[in-house]
Amino acid sequence: MHETMVAESLVNSIIAEAAKNEGKPIKAKMSCGLLNTVNDEVLTFAFEAISKGTICEGITLEIEHKAMKGKCKDCGKEFDFEIVEPRCSHCGCDSFELLPDPPLLLEEIEFQTE
């Protein structure tokens, strides 16, 4: 249900950006990390509900999930951290450092101009 707050923040950011740009926003791209635990269906539903009656109504929301990276202490390589099987995908070692989880980002807005 925290998706509601994410959706609200998204809508506010898009409204603020739309005021600075010509045209109507038609698509927004966002990305998130693993530990943000964003559910696409819930977020899209919340986004549509909160968008109603604003300039965001009808916008297509694209959500990209970015991997959280681990850095192996044995082979030194970076790998995509899998939450259910946390080990280096290169050498299988389970000794690694977790790199920061990608934050929730509003990456891009596409505006339709005349």
Partner: peptide, 18 residues
């Protein structure tokens, strides 16, 4: 009809993080 893309890379929960 033309479309314009605006790159942002803005943190969505930046208010909370601040």
């Amino acid at each position: 009809m033309t479309n314009k893309r605006v790159q942002l890379g803005r943190k969505i929960l930046s208010a909370n993080e601040e």
